[in-house]
């Protein structure tokens, strides 16, 4: 079995995003970038499936600027066998990203595609669902448990009311949640080895897809700031303020 894993380069989750003064977007100059945390879970799951003997090959895919190679090398250091980088300087919408994934799926014929449930920069939460729609495959989103057997996948999903279980035919697209597993760290020898693992690059233009954006970002603004609060000295003062000042209890 072969698994294709989506790996997106994003702003480090520990770093607070800063809006550019001209309101055109987020200032990413010299910002610390990293693999989307949900994608770390996706890579981890793929590697565990290979270690368990269920999967033979793990291929990592990223779509983005040349720097995304770093993120793919990280996936290779964690244990992916090879990587594909589709180069573009444009910021693509999830529909376009899903079309690129579909083109790669048609070349690679994986049995399973694993993506993060959302990318922490744009928080779209769309790519996996869109890809499965374009492929005519089933989808299993927000997975916190994945079991493969007899050509199907049994998936536990984190939903608002608790945990839902569904069973989907393979091939399938699964979008993963953070509690699926605990991602490992790359060891230094593996980081060195990753430099020699195969990484194929192609230009987005060569895929001949319609990836035009359907949305224009008019401006990016700071969220409204909260007024400064006060430190209360005691529980009694807190209760008094909640009753008489905020009037919420």
């Amino acid at each position: 079995m072969k698994v294709l894993v989506g790996v997106k380069r994003v702003l480090d989750p520990q770093v607070k995003a800063r809006v550019k003064a001209d309101k055109s977007g987020i200032d990413l100059t010299n910002a610390k970038m990293t693999m989307n945390p949900f994608d770390e879970n996706a890579v981890e799951e793929a590697i565990r499936l290979r270690e368990a003997g269920t999967v033979e090959e793990v291929v990592a895919l990223s779509i983005g600027a040349a720097k995304s190679e770093e993120t793919l090398r990280n996936a290779l250091a964690l244990g992916a066998d090879r990587a594909i980088l589709v180069l573009t300087e444009d910021v693509l919408e999830p529909l376009a990203i899903a079309k690129v994934f579909k083109a790669i799926v048609e070349k690679e014929s994986p049995d399973l595609v694993l993506v993060g449930k959302q990318a922490i920069d744009d928080d779209c939460n769309q790519t996996g669902q869109m890809l499965s729609a374009l492929l005519g495959w089933p989808q299993a989103t927000f997975a916190s448990k994945l079991e493969l057997a007899d050509g199907t996948a049994q998936v536990t999903r984190e939903v608002d009311s608790g945990l839902e279980t569904i069973n989907v035919n393979m091939p399938a697209v699964v979008s993963v949640d953070l509690r699926l597993n605990e991602p490992r760290y790359a060891s230094l020898p593996n980081v060195m080895k990753a430099k020699r693992k195969p990484l194929e690059k192609m230009d987005l233009a060569d895929l001949g897809l319609d990836t035009a954006n359907r949305m224009t970002t008019i401006e990016v603004m700071e969220p409204p700031a909260r007024a400064a609060g006060v430190i209360v000295e005691s529980v009694a003062e807190l209760v008094e303020k909640l009753r008489n000042e905020a009037k919420v209890i």
């Binding site: 919408e93 999830p94 529909l95 899903a98 744009d122 928080d123 779209c124 939460n125 769309q126 790519t127 669902q129 869109m130 890809l131 499965s132 729609a133 374009l134 989808q139 989103t141 927000f142 999903r157 984190e158 939903v159 608002d160 954006n213 359907r214 949305m215």
Partner: peptide, 21 residues
């Protein structure tokens, strides 16, 4: 919600439309 986020992007892609999240 997890209900809406699950099916809506799928419907959007089938219609070849983007989703505004």
């Amino acid at each position: 919600t997890t209900f809406g986020k699950n099916f809506m992007p799928r419907a959007a892609a089938l219609l070849d439309m983007s989703q505004i999240s």
